[in-house]
Each structure stands twice: as C-alpha cells, then as structure tokens.
C-alpha cells in the first residue's frame, strides 16, 4: 500500500509543472489580445501565431500530464 500512496502523490506532484504552461498561455493571449485591439486588421495573422504559441506552451503541460498518466497507469 505504501508504493500505491507514493504513486498517487507522485502523479499529483508531476502536475505542478502545468503552472508554468498556464502562466505562459496567459501571457501569450494577453499580448495577442492587446495586439488585436490596437490593430484589428492584423487579427487573422495574430491569431494564427497565437495558436501556435499556445500549442508550444501547452506541450510542456502535456508532458507533465503524460508523466502523471504513466505513473498512474503503467506498472
């Protein structure tokens, strides 16, 4: 039972890394919305780049998620 508890705690700890991704996405969208507000004509271009940036920032969170899932469901 000890190992089981450690696994659950470890999966929880692994998800701490998503704080960074959350902050990153927040900063990204903040910048993109300000850019669109100042220059609405560039909205399409800004949105494309924003989604790309979000995908990159989100990838880090997904790594954490995959690690947590691996801890929980493998072995």
């Amino acid at each position: 039972m000890e190992a089981e508890a450690a696994r659950l705690i470890g999966a929880g700890l692994a998800m701490i890394g998503t704080i960074g991704a959350g902050l990153g996405i927040g900063v990204l969208v903040n910048g993109a919305v300000q850019g669109i507000a100042r220059n609405p004509d560039a909205a399409g271009n800004v949105q494309t780049n924003m989604i790309l940036g979000i995908a990159f920032a989100e990838a880090v969170a997904i790594y954490c998620l995959v690690v947590a899932l691996l801890i929980l469901f493998v072995g």
Binding site: F56, E58, A59, I62, Y63, L65, V66, L69
Partner: peptide, 8 residues
C-alpha cells in the same frame, strides 16, 4: 512534442 501533445 508532436506525438505526446496529441496522445496526452
């Protein structure tokens, strides 16, 4: 990053 993003 490609594979883990979709999978995750």
């Amino acid at each position: 990053s490609f594979s883990f993003r979709l999978f995750g």
